[in-house]
Amino acid sequence: MPEYTPNAKGPAPARITPETTEPAPIPADQVKPEDIGKMAIEYRDGQPVIVVSGGKYIPETLTAVAASGSEAATYAVSTKPKTMTYLPYKY
């Protein structure tokens, strides 16, 4: 007896729905503190990445602050990866 299905027509067709794949923002006042993910910076292959653990939500924007306390940059969250670039900032 053969080890294949003689009437097989290949894999089932994929069903793609037009629903959004982007996460919907939630106002900060509707998020409980225990639901906010803890973030840490790690370096992988020489590139910084933010690792999130626990929680259900992350902020939509992140602000980088220099050691002096002045704002160095603000980053917006995106679900689409982008090329990493570095910018100088003043301390």
Score class of each variant (00 low, 15 high):
3 E>M: 12
89 Y>P: 02
36 I>R: 13
41 I>C: 14
39 M>S: 10
38 K>R: 11
3 E>N: 15
5 T>W: 04
24 A>F: 11
30 Q>R: 12
77 V>P: 05
31 V>H: 07
85 T>A: 13
67 A>W: 00
35 D>C: 03
27 P>F: 13
68 S>R: 01
90 K>I: 01
28 A>K: 12
90 K>N: 06
13 P>C: 02
83 T>G: 07
31 V>L: 08
81 P>A: 05
79 T>R: 15
51 V>F: 09
43 Y>Q: 08
25 P>G: 09
85 T>N: 15
28 A>E: 15
58 I>W: 04
55 G>A: 09
51 V>P: 07
56 K>H: 13
18 P>F: 13
14 A>N: 07
9 K>G: 00
20 T>I: 12
42 E>G: 04
16 I>G: 09
81 P>G: 04
31 V>D: 04
36 I>Q: 14
74 T>D: 07
48 P>Q: 02
71 E>W: 02
35 D>A: 15
78 S>W: 09
44 R>A: 07
69 G>C: 00
52 V>E: 14
48 P>M: 03
23 P>S: 02
15 R>S: 15
15 R>V: 15
6 P>K: 01
14 A>F: 06
82 K>P: 00
74 T>E: 15
32 K>W: 09
15 R>W: 15
75 Y>H: 04
57 Y>T: 05
86 Y>K: 11
84 M>F: 10
10 G>H: 02
86 Y>M: 11
23 P>K: 05
1 M>G: 14
53 S>L: 04
43 Y>K: 06
33 P>T: 03
84 M>G: 06
24 A>N: 08
14 A>L: 12
17 T>H: 10
91 Y>T: 08
52 V>R: 10
60 E>W: 02
1 M>K: 06
68 S>P: 00
22 E>K: 15
44 R>K: 13
41 I>K: 08
28 A>C: 12
73 A>G: 01
19 E>F: 09
24 A>M: 12
60 E>Y: 04
49 V>M: 10
14 A>I: 04
26 I>Q: 05
87 L>C: 07
46 G>Y: 11
71 E>Q: 14
12 A>P: 06
84 M>S: 14
79 T>K: 14
65 V>A: 09
70 S>N: 10
80 K>Q: 12
48 P>A: 01
74 T>K: 14
71 E>M: 11
76 A>R: 13
11 P>G: 12
8 A>P: 05
28 A>N: 12
12 A>M: 11
